[in-house]
Amino acid sequence: MKAAAIEWGPYLVLILIGFLPNEVWRVLGLLTARGLSEDSELVIWSRTVATALLAGVIAKLILFSSGELANIPLAVRIGAAACAFGAYLAIKRSVFAGVIAGEVALLLGGFLFGH
């Protein structure tokens, strides 16, 4: 019994803290969305909440970076994001062009202003 608990313990932990916490929200979402049309008010509100939340994640990744990205100065990171946005607007709203521009700007900025 004890050996089995030790052997299966990690998998149980994986399910309990890796799988279930995410799945709960997904299933709740599934149940809530049942029968709702895509232009119902709750669905529109959910989209605005999800969009704002996602934007928050993105801004935090850029402003409060960690790991190797944190070694590049904050001003360079913000500047690179601005370059990416500018290139995106200038080059036919191409995400690919924008990302490349942002990456090049970050590389140059990091190279010139230390990292």
């Binding site: 599934l30 709702l36 959910s46």
Partner: peptide, 13 residues
């Protein structure tokens, strides 16, 4: 992991 809730509600319909 709350973000998954509004994401799923907005997508499934």
């Amino acid at each position: 992991a709350t973000r998954l809730f509004p994401m799923v509600v907005a997508l499934l319909p």
